[in-house]
Nucleic acid binder design. Structure first.
Lengths: 152, 152
DNA sequence: GTTGAAACCGGTTGTCT
DNA sequence: AGACAACCGGTTTCAAC
């Protein structure tokens, strides 16, 4: 259950490059292939490693616009949160959605092609959601940092 | 340069599971192994596929707390933005950082173990940054959706 | 774009210490 | 838990169509 320093190093390595061979990782952690193989399988089976994915450059596939959207729900409608959550999960333009503390209820991260596409998306998919009381959009002008690495 | 429907399908598949074999993908797109292999190499060489990574479950490695932090810089100091950007890139707790439009300058996504760890991080790493004029933290209470998939 | 062949390499398993 | 060896399956490149 507990992760030792070798497990943590393996997790860091795989979070940077999932295509490393077991041999390469074995060299870096100063072990032979077998224990490294077993450790990785264990991390996968424990659900610590959730999945292996390819990361795509959004600008090179014509998705230059990223927007954060702050949402406040109408608190009178008690079923509103479940409805809203389910609607959000169906929209592929929304990459992340969290319930947050503070001046609003949700923070959404949205990726679309351009401002026109965002306007269409906002008008036809977001603003039509019942139970929404207020929304405010903040446009990303520069991505200073973006990583999936949880440094161990 | 242009992506056809086969390329887009391959990108969707690899964004969901980077460990698919070429044979498996070939079956799904109804082509033989050779052209699928060539297409994937081309997507990699074009930088459309940026990298392959393992995604780690943050709660299972003791990183239960996620925080969004809104930052406003002191506009009097013209070099402040470059200084701030570089400082942010050095902090592994900060997974994402964007310059945004609206009532503040930056939006940060931060992952730490718990509230105590966030307090320590905030006091010793964030609030000490010169050029920061104002900061506000919003705590994630529930992650409704979180994906890296750019749906094509 | 398809097929088939060949060389190579990495994953996987069993067995040993 | 780690090391070694053998097997299997995938990748990669090539040639021919």
């Amino acid at each position: 259950m507990e992760l030792d320093s070798t497990d943590r190093l393996l997790l860091n390595l795989l979070q940077e490059n999932a295509l490393l061979t077991v041999r390469e990782m074995a060299e870096k952690v100063h072990l032979s292939i077998t224990p490294v193989h077993d450790r990785i399988k264990k991390l996968e089976n424990q659900g610590i490693i959730e999945k292996y994915v390819a990361l795509v450059n959004r600008k090179r596939i014509g998705r230059a616009m990223m927007v954060y959207c702050f949402v406040t729900l109408d608190k009178q409608r008690r079923e509103g949160f479940q409805e809203f959550n389910e609607a959000i999960r169906q929209l592929p333009e929304i990459l992340e959605c969290s319930v947050v503390s503070g001046n609003f209820d949700y923070l959404l991260k949205i990726v679309v092609a351009d401002m026109e596409a965002y306007n269409t998306f906002y008008q036809s998919k977001l603003s039509v959601l019942s139970s929404v009381s207020h929304m405010s959009s903040s446009f990303v002008m520069e991505e200073v940092k973006s990583t999936t690495l949880l440094n161990l």
